[in-house]
Design a protein around this nucleic acid. Structure first.
Lengths: 172, 172
DNA sequence: TCTCAGTTTGCGGATTTCGCAGATGCGGGG
DNA sequence: CCCCGCATCTGCGAAATCCGCAAACTGAGA
């Protein structure tokens, strides 16, 4: 029902204040602190957050609502793909002839593609795909991705072990 | 304060029921439906979730608590790196001589490394790094990552545009 | 100084969360 | 077949939290 996009800036008409630098609404220290609280526990009560950052419960609530409305953050459940039945994952580097963005859109439309990014370097696109098993993985890479018009070649990196995965952006 | 890890199964002593297949506690359809609700809105009230999945408020609450305790999911705020002041991101492929896992651990310890995964293919490791600007990115790649003992070579893919980023694992 | 827009604060009232005690359901002995 | 242990679900009050709103506050500009 909604995009699920987090980081593609655009896609939001009211970003008039946003200049070409990609700065965005820039957050003050208090909003950063609020985000930090919610990165530890997305369900932490507003009053507890307020106590931690030095603000009233209502003020925290308004700030959180604005951050959500602006698309700066979203509060979601993230799961371990392994325990949810997806046992094969891979990063796929893609080389494209013609319009890269249209290929990216086509890949982004595939539900198995969890992550699609345009890159500079020896690949034009990097795509993370998550599958149920080897057969599924094979089909996605060799049948679906390579069938997209404009895809010249692909190189796959099957995941052996995920070592780190954080959601601590904006905390440092 | 806590690991922030999602998908590295291990790291949890109480995983005795987990066999070598990597199956995990396997979830029934109701838990899947609960997760789906929380992927849309991590703060959705238990009663609303219960109405959606056909369970009482208390039952939903118990299931959610168990899913959190088991590490199957976590409810967190995720942010757009751009609006939080990180303007340069890159995927880095790493080739290793010697023990790959110890290199992975060293990279995982770096705060700029958002994502570290051991892979099969022409790279031993893939690392996503998020930086404030070009200088920062350059320093991380050329000074820090290549300084790790065992790193033979790296190849960088600077992000030009993030096209898709979802958290819809387990929903399909 | 005055105005205005954006934030913060302090409240009630509605809603939600929480803990617990009592059902319900389901195998595994005996 | 019955009983028991274990896990889950349900139905409550009580406590905490969320929510909307009006008033107070703040800083920039006329």
């Amino acid at each position: 029902m909604h995009s699920g996009l987090v980081a593609s800036r655009s896609a939001d008409p009211r970003d008039s204040r946003e200049s070409k630098n990609g700065g965005g609404p820039q957050l003050d220290a208090v909003s950063l602190a609020i985000i930090e609280q919610l990165q530890e526990d997305g369900r932490r009560p507003y009053a507890a957050i307020g106590k931690a950052v030095g603000l009233s419960e209502a003020a925290v609530r308004q700030r959180v609502q604005k951050l959500l409305d602006q698309g700066v953050m979203q509060i979601v459940a993230v799961t371990d793909p392994l325990t949810v039945g997806f046992r094969r994952q891979a990063m796929v580097g893609v080389n494209v002839e013609g319009d890269v963005e249209s290929v990216a859109d086509a890949l982004a439309a595939m539900s198995e593609c969890e992550y699609v990014v345009m890159t500079a370097g020896s690949f034009d696109l990097m795509v993370e795909i998550v599958c149920e098993d080897d057969d599924h993985l094979l089909e996605v890479i060799n049948k679906r991705i390579r069938a997209v018009p404009g895809v010249r070649s692909t190189e796959s990196f099957v995941y052996l072990k995920l070592k780190k995965q954080t959601y601590m952006w904006g905390t440092r």
